[in-house]
């Protein structure tokens, strides 16, 4: 069966093997990019880890969310994989021409780190380290741009009940600056906190996990929050986010003359 996979699909399977408990939450969007359909388009090199995170050993009972910009997120994944965590890629924006968020370097890093992750021989039940790109809602889309901004929702993560039932007791957020919580991620962390998980952040300054105060949004648990939040984003026909913002036609009849 594996022989029928494209190169990108094979990379995805290396990151998220079918047998892994966390694969149902992994996002294949970035791996499904046409640029990753053939080997050799990039020249991937091994990715260096983030030494500060090496104090993160003994992952028992701990879930990690890495919310760092672009390549740094993959660097954290390499370090955490070395400590026994299974990186779970949640990158949900596609690649495209004139992209609002450039993802080519991220893809290059993901490809480069694949062998490093695979060679660790991680357990299928290893604690997860969910990977996000903190730039996901950055940039200013304009007409003609490929708008690949994206958001994450509680539905993109395992529930607090599931994590608790599997013996996890704390969640640690790795972000910059220390403890920065993006609005979309707050919806996830608050639910987990309500479930009974201890929510902490990793301090690069003290190299320790400290209690995190998660800001509560007025839209928290609003039943139409997800539909509302997605307005203005551009879904991709193959899944995830990313599409060209149509330029108004010069021959349209919307104006005068």
């Amino acid at each position: 069966m594996d022989e029928q996979l494209t190169y990108g699909e094979q990379l995805f399977v290396d990151w998220a093997p079918d047998e892994s408990v966390w694969t149902p939450w992994a996002k294949p969007v970035l791996f499904n990019s046409p640029a990753l359909s053939k080997k050799g388009l990039f020249s991937p090199s091994a990715v260096e880890g983030i030494p500060e995170l090496e104090t993160f050993a003994n992952p028992t009972g701990r879930v990690v969310i890495v919310d760092l910009p672009g390549v740094n997120s993959v660097r954290a994944a390499v370090t955490l994989a070395g400590l026994g965590y299974r990186p779970v890629p949640l990158y949900n924006g596609c690649e495209g021409p004139s992209a609002v968020i450039p993802v080519r370097e991220l893809m290059d890093a993901v490809e480069g780190a694949t062998a490093q992750i695979k060679d660790r021989g991680l357990s299928f039940n290893a604690p997860p380290a969910f990977l996000l790109d903190s730039r996901r809602m950055s940039g200013f889309p304009a007409f003609g741009n490929f708008d690949n901004r994206w958001l994450i929702f509680p539905q993109d993560f395992p529930s607090g009940n599931l994590l608790l039932s599997k013996g996890f007791s704390e969640v640690v957020l790795v972000s910059l600056p220390d403890g920065a919580v993006q609005k979309d991620l707050a919806h996830v962390l608050l639910r987990w906190k309500e479930s009974g998980l201890a929510v902490k952040f990793f301090s690069f300054a003290t190299q320790d996990a400290l209690p995190l105060n998660v800001p509560r949004s007025a839209q928290y648990k609003l039943f139409f929050y997800r539909a509302l939040a997605k307005l203005g984003l551009h879904p991709n026909s193959a899944g995830g986010f990313g599409d060209v913002i149509a330029t108004p036609s010069e021959t349209s009849h919307g104006g005068y003359g």
């Binding site: 929702f153 539905q155 039943f223 139409f224 997800r226 539909a227 509302l228 879904p235 899944g239």
Partner: peptide, 12 residues
């Protein structure tokens, strides 16, 4: 999707 079930996100 405004009532909490999003076909594209949840199912597809």
């Amino acid at each position: 999707s405004f009532l909490g079930l999003d076909f594209r996100h949840d199912v597809a």
